[in-house]
Design a binder for these strands. Structure first.
Lengths: 158, 158
DNA sequence: TTGCAAAGTTAGGCAGGACTAACTATATTA
DNA sequence: TAATATAGTTAGTCCTGCCTAACTTTGCAA
């Protein structure tokens, strides 16, 4: 089993990969222009990012051509998307945060939380979901609970 | 009630503020050198950051002097520290992640999650804590639950 | 098949945040 | 009180990531 040397990616490059991945899913091709639109970034920024992704062996990119992800690129993308989905689900369905906010927060947090936390969070979601099937309905109980006042939590406790 | 025009801070500046705040708590003074050590950053980087914080009215800083936070600076710091603590608690005590990892993840996530998510998370922690007092012991149940295999979560679901 | 709009690239610039090396203040202590 | 170690600052560089403006390719329509 060859572990492919886990590439370190900046938050920004992760965003590009994610965008390419999602565009490919939605319309089969990712074009520079669409990436730029999706990320709210100029076309020239996209060109730069694509070159970097190519250098890292994550994207197949030739000037003026369509963009696809390499095998490794798809692997990286899948991981990011997975993080995103887990976070979004947790924020929205467990914490009960409004959809757009959950989406937004997931976009930002997906770059900062490591695999251990994500794995735990996934287990936790499953735990909660299970409890809902069991009729224990943790999420409902939490919704109900949300009407009480908050506590302190302002002392540092490293 | 004068809302003090919520200042936008980069993750990096938030780190500096947090460091100054914690150093002041621990040893009553924050010195450039200690800040540099704590953040693993060169002394000159600290000088630069302190000037920025001064410009933004968050730190009292004179070259070669001690560093303190202004009223607003302390406000900002308290918010960051609060986020940090809530996140750390959640990761460690709810998800059951190892202390150092929880600490680390909190350090990174504290810059990306907004007040709504944090507020919800706090409520959630209280909910769980309450349940523990009630003898329902959600955390224990979760620990026990953690022995089952994970599911998919790889399709995008924006 | 040429001719133009749309897509993409290049060049050049700027801000944030970090670094090292060299210099300056401060403080301690002999 | 002068010498020196320690703390702090300045100057200059680098890298990432973004931008605009100008230029080049491509592809479609007349």
């Amino acid at each position: 089993m060859t572990k492919p040397d886990k590439i370190e990616l900046s938050a920004s490059l992760e965003d590009y990969i994610e965008a390419i991945f999602n565009l490919a899913l939605e319309s089969n091709v990712a074009r520079s222009k669409n990436i730029a639109e999706r990320l709210n970034v100029s076309k020239s920024s996209v060109t730069g990012a694509l070159r970097l992704l190519k250098d890292k062996g994550l994207a197949n990119y030739e000037p003026y051509g369509y963009v696809t992800l390499t095998e490794r690129g798809r692997g990286a993308a899948a991981e990011i998307v997975k993080k995103h989905n887990i976070l979004k689900f947790f924020f929205e369905k467990v914490l009960g945060v409004e959809t757009d906010l959950a989406q937004d927060a997931a976009c930002r947090a997906e770059h900062t939380l490591g695999p251990e936390i994500i794995a735990r969070l996934l287990s936790f979601i499953e735990f909660v979901t299970e409890s809902n099937k069991d009729g224990c309905r943790l999420t409902d109980q939490f919704r109900e609970f949300c009407g009480k006042p908050p506590a302190a939590f302002t002392e540092p406790q490293n």
